[in-house]
Design a protein around this nucleic acid. Sequence first.
DNA 1: ATGACTCCCAGTGGGAGA
Length: 261
Amino acid sequence: MKLATWNVNSLAVRLPQLLDWLNAEAATSPVDAVVLQETKLTDDKFPRAEIEAAGYQVHFHGQRTYNGVALLSRGAAPLDVVKNIPGLDDAQARVIAGTVHGIRVIGGYFPNGQAPDSDKFIYKMRWQDALHDWVKAELAQHPRLVLMGDFNVAPDDRDVYDPVGWMNQIHCTPQERAQFQRLLGLGLVDAFRLFEQPVKSWSWWDYRNLAFRKNQGLRIDHILVSEALRSQVQACVIAKAVRKNERPSDHAPVLVQLGPA
DNA sequence: ATGACTCCCAGTGGGAGA
């Protein structure tokens, strides 16, 4: 079972790359479930037919210009689909969840936060509080759970190309990192760090400053797996090659391979 | 460096992203 998350930064622009990437992955083993972020499409404009033609069932929750998430499931339809965090009054489309092949999959596009002294940062903290409480409840019901997406948090200095320059900046504040640790405290583990990884592994590179060419980035896209799944995790990688596309997203996909129970 | 790039909605510029 292979699961993946990717912030596409506009699915209208990135649909060809999405289909190419899924096709390329299938050469080794097909991705069974995918969560997408920043689709930036209202539901009436979502390219359902193209994604279904690639062999996926798809659910989506979008809006104009910003945000927007989707859940792709190869073959079988996801069960018990949830859009946004139940109980949180939120105008922004940031969460989609469903049960895929017996695993509860939650895809999230965490708020950016803009700056630590901004109203958007306050929203980011409030949103993460709500997510934490909801994921706790989901875990009680679904011990086999994966929470993945664009967290907009670099959990550790080794997830930042310039930790001194980024100190206390957005994505690296103690408050954001504490929120990340709170999620782990629910009984989740950062799948990427279960394995020895290359130093300077990032999932996002700024479009500016030749950042990708210089490998100046952040690791802000994550896959957290529950304790019940931990022993099944066989690999977790960042598909850096996808960032080399002619017209790339600023994020690369992150994938996790789960073996049999 | 208040920049840089990309996307969007707009409309010959500006906000947001991270």
